[in-house]
Write a protein that binds this DNA or RNA. Structure first.
Length: 232
DNA sequence: AATCTCTTCAACCGCCTCCGG
DNA sequence: TCCGGAGGCGGTTGAAGAGAT
């Protein structure tokens, strides 16, 4: 998710806001549906949107991310500051798609598939009996300091009140080799995990908590795979 | 100058997930 | 548990402009 540049309310609309919206539409005669308004704002009007040609490093990163993620434009755009998913998608379809050749089989890249936002079981036991569906399990951000199970009637949670617990959580997440299809198994093991984990934990513990940059484990693994690419 | 073809990119569409009632 | 509204996403379309003939 992109970090909003303005302070934006995300909760339900209040009566005052409804009135304000009505007034705006009455005053300016805006005849657009909510989706259209949203799209226009997100793709065009938002003040932090970067316009103009993509720089070489942006293109390079886009290609790497696309190798990694496939057509997950919003995730790719999230790594390209100021660029929108539509932007990235259009650029890819017009400039890059035709240029791209099949990736070298040596790379052995696997696309990270979408995952649900919440873990389905508590982490200390997730790795053996989890993941019934085809998607990867994922975690809520540790910034929340707890992981709540989405199992009905079983709201167990993982205790992050202690820093070491949080570190162990991430280590379990990243290092478990037995986990059937999520976490550690969809990533390239060519690099030193320990090194990555130590660095990533630093990032997670500072950025996730303070800036909420790692909204999902997905994003952490993207960084891990990028890190692998850059540290062969 | 007129017409055709190609390229670009904003906007639309349909689908999925989440959430609250 | 079900349902409807809202948010978000990727795929696709089509208008407008640029370039070629």
């Amino acid at each position: 998710m992109e970090a909003p540049s303005l302070s934006v309310r995300k909760c339900a609309w209040t009566e005052e806001e409804d009135i304000l919206l009505k007034k705006c539409i009455e005053k300016y005669g805006l005849n657009r549906c909510r989706k259209s308004c949203r799209l226009r704002w997100l793709n065009y009007l938002k003040p932090d949107i970067k316009r103009g040609a993509f720089a070489d490093d942006e293109v390079d990163l886009m290609i790497r991310l696309h190798n990694l993620l496939g057509n997950r434009w919003s995730l790719i755009a999230g790594r390209l500051p100021g660029r929108t998913a539509n932007n990235v998608k259009n650029y890819w379809n017009t400039y890059l798609r035709k240029k791209m050749v099949k990736p070298s089989p040596k790379l052995n890249i696997e696309v990270i598939k979408p995952r649900p936002l919440n873990l389905s079981v508590p982490l200390d036991k997730n790795n053996k009996n989890n993941n019934n569906d085809s998607d990867h399990a994922a975690a809520s951000t540790p910034a929340s300091n707890s992981l709540v199970s989405s199992d009905s009637g079983n709201n167990s949670s993982y205790d992050f009140s202690n820093d070491n617990n949080e570190i162990m959580w991430w280590k379990n997440m990243l290092m478990n080799e037995d986990e059937p299809q999520g976490f550690g198994n969809n990533i390239n093991h060519s690099a030193s995990r320990d090194q990555f984990i130590n660095e990533a934990l630093g990032d997670v513990r500072t950025q996730a908590v303070e800036e909420d940059n790692y909204g999902t484990v997905d994003e952490l693994f993207i960084d891990f795979d990028l890190w692998n690419m850059l540290n062969p």
